[in-house]
Design a protein around this nucleic acid. Structure first.
Lengths: 234, 234
DNA sequence: TCATTTACATACAGTCTGGACTGTATCATA
DNA sequence: TATGATACAGTCCAGACTGTATGTAAATGA
């Protein structure tokens, strides 16, 4: 009898091969993490209940509890996943602007649209807010921030140079990131023209002292942490 | 028998006069609103349950339900209260820096310490995050933002002037507010030196093109909305 | 092939929340 | 001072959430 069911499934899925335990686990974790980040962005931290997450992931409550014994564990891993996604986005973003005409404007626009005006950033905001009352989460997010900054800093100094100021490109871009954070936080409360004018305003203000180095089109020297982080993504 | 209890209270408080209904209501509302904002800042939006709020306010569940039929109503009124407090802080802040030596630095520092690195701003962050899923709250906060900006804009253009840029002082300060928002959001995740350097970095960058007008020590022309908002504070 | 581990499913227990509801004391006023 | 309105207190309840305990099927390894 235990032979029949698999045979039927084979007929339907056309793929009789059953996945290995590891594959199953990984796929399940991925679904749970994606659903968690989605839920954080859409339903907020408070609205992200385990029930809603597993419903969104289309799995059972038991699957979640098997892979993550507590809600805290799931959220911590989701933070880690958020970091990895951010790394990858930042990487492709930096590569994509390396051939742009007006690199500064392109970088600002791309950062805004692909990193801060996104559901992923909303999820980040929720986690940051929650980290105010969760020491463990605060640790994780703090480490995450430092790692992203450590990646971005050399890249910024590689692609750009400053003149007539004591600030290095990395300092300028850290300012930009704070600006974008603030804009992103209140994006839904501000009008589009205001946001647009803030983005352009920063570019206009930064252009005289911050410019892209000429002839740099190859990717920057990647810090070791870059690959180290990504290697576990699979 | 109903005579005795009041008499005893009189002996204790030394003030036999019973408050009028209106006084009682107002005092109770004030306690509830203060407790709500406190709770938002400390316990977060999710942690701000009605039970915790009334416990913090030291009143009964019945008192809260009498003045605010729903949690939503309480939070909306708390948002309004947040606006009023912000108005007042901004007002005293603007007055306090009018006699400072380095007005720009003083303004930035004061804004940071008295407005963004405060529990009140944490409460604001919680409300903004929650407003993502609450249209009514979003409306209220949006209106609040616009009103604060409407107050700040003429004041900025009154105290300061720009040169060598198309941006007006108000645009610069809007940028500053976004920067401070972003810093404030992640304040607990960033190191103090990073924050300090960002504040100073903005001042250094803005100084060449933004300076305080000479000899302006009197308060700016207040917009009508200023008094209109404050008159209900009592 | 069989025992053991892993992956997942379901049911349940205990806690908490928000809103409804009831009761009581105080105030305003005619 | 009688009467209705207001201010507050305390309790109850239906629903939701998390963690746990238990059951089953699939995969792994000997």
């Amino acid at each position: 009898m235990s032979r029949i069911a698999p045979a039927m499934k084979t007929a339907i899925t056309e793929k009789p091969r059953r996945r290995t335990q590891e594959e199953r686990s990984e796929a399940m974790r991925k679904r749970l993490l994606a659903a968690t980040l989605e839920s954080l962005a859409e339903d907020g931290y408070a609205g992200s209940t385990l029930s809603s997450i597993v419903r969104r992931a289309g799995v059972s409550r038991g699957a979640q509890v098997h892979h993550y014994p507590s809600k805290q564990a799931l959220l911590l891993d989701a933070s880690e996943d958020l970091l990895k996604r951010t790394y990858r986005r930042l990487g492709t973003l930096l590569l994509s602007i390396s051939e742009e005409d007006n690199r500064l404007q392109a970088l600002v626009d791309a950062c805004w649209e692909q990193m801060f005006a996104t559901p992923l950033y909303r999820a980040y905001c929720e986690l940051v807010a929650a980290s105010q009352r969760d020491e463990e989460l605060a640790q994780a997010l703090g480490a995450m921030l430092r790692r992203v900054m450590a990646l971005f800093e050399p890249a910024a100094n590689y692609y750009f140079e400053t003149s007539g100021t004591k600030l290095r490109p990395a300092d300028m871009f850290l300012q930009l990131s704070c600006l974008l954070s603030g804009l992103g936080l209140q994006a839904t409360l501000l009008s589009k023209p205001v946001i647009r004018s803030q983005l352009d305003g920063w570019v206009r203000q930064a252009s005289p002292i911050l410019r892209a180095r000429k002839g740099i089109t190859s990717p920057p020297p990647r810090p070791a942490s870059w690959d180290r982080v990504l290697e576990t993504v699979g």
